[in-house]
Design a protein around this nucleic acid. Sequence first.
DNA 1: AAACAGTTCAACCGCGTCTGG
DNA 2: GCCAGACGCGGTTGAACTGTT
Length: 261
Amino acid sequence: MGFKPSEKPTTRKHKRGLWSPEEDQRLRDYLLRYGISCWSSVPSNAGLQRNGKSCRLRWINYLRPGLKRGMFSSQEEDMILTLHKNLGNKWSQIAKQLPGRTDNEIKNYWHSYLKKRPAKSDDTVINIQSNSTNFCSTMDSVCSLNPTTNRVVLGIDLDSIQNEFQMPSIEQRENPENLLPRCFFSDWLTTDNNSIAQNSEISGKQDEDFLQCFQYNEGHVEIGNNLQDNMLDLPFTFLDQNTVGSCFNGLSAGNAVYSGF
DNA sequence: AAACAGTTCAACCGCGTCTGG
DNA sequence: GCCAGACGCGGTTGAACTGTT
């Protein structure tokens, strides 16, 4: 934190230090309602004495829906070790491969636990490929390897997703007046850079299409093949794009569904 | 029970990159 | 091309917590 709360200068423009529950609530309410256009304007609009940077960090690391709290599973540990071996301290890149975890969280975990741990054999990825057990569990989702297709399958409990992300019910979906708040799938489903657009079988599709494909495939998305070769270049594919519903047809233009976070 | 040491993790800082004028 | 503001990332800090003596 780098400060002592008791030493807060009264002349400081922005409040610093730990966030109070009231501040969290203000920020959460504001962002869920209006989304993010410009972080620097968020504090004043939300009635906070923080700076935009602090708000952004608080949101990303703590308030953002879909974050997974608590201990890392052994599978997650293995993934971090494998990815860190390949990437080094590219925490944001590593975090993208671990749904629900933040770069800060992973970085802390690395420095607190993994760095001190004796090196394990580095066949984690091979182990992933050699059996079909889940290797990545998150809030209500699991990643596993489809041994037939040799692709990673992300399976998600749609009920929990709907609750967590305030997705519309079937009835709500049919009513275009019911617009979603922004949902926050970017770190669940995106891979690095533009790999989706570049490599995906849905190249060229827009964000909404992507999410539509995801949602109405019973929560299953295959996210790549040849995992062993390059975990960071995972093209997305969809098990069945035809099962997409009209779930997000009610979204108005500019009402980003999952991107931008 | 108190003092000290070690650990955890939320938050800050600084810098590089991106973007729009 | 230049500049300023915004954003994103990795490194660092230190309060709070936990364990040990």
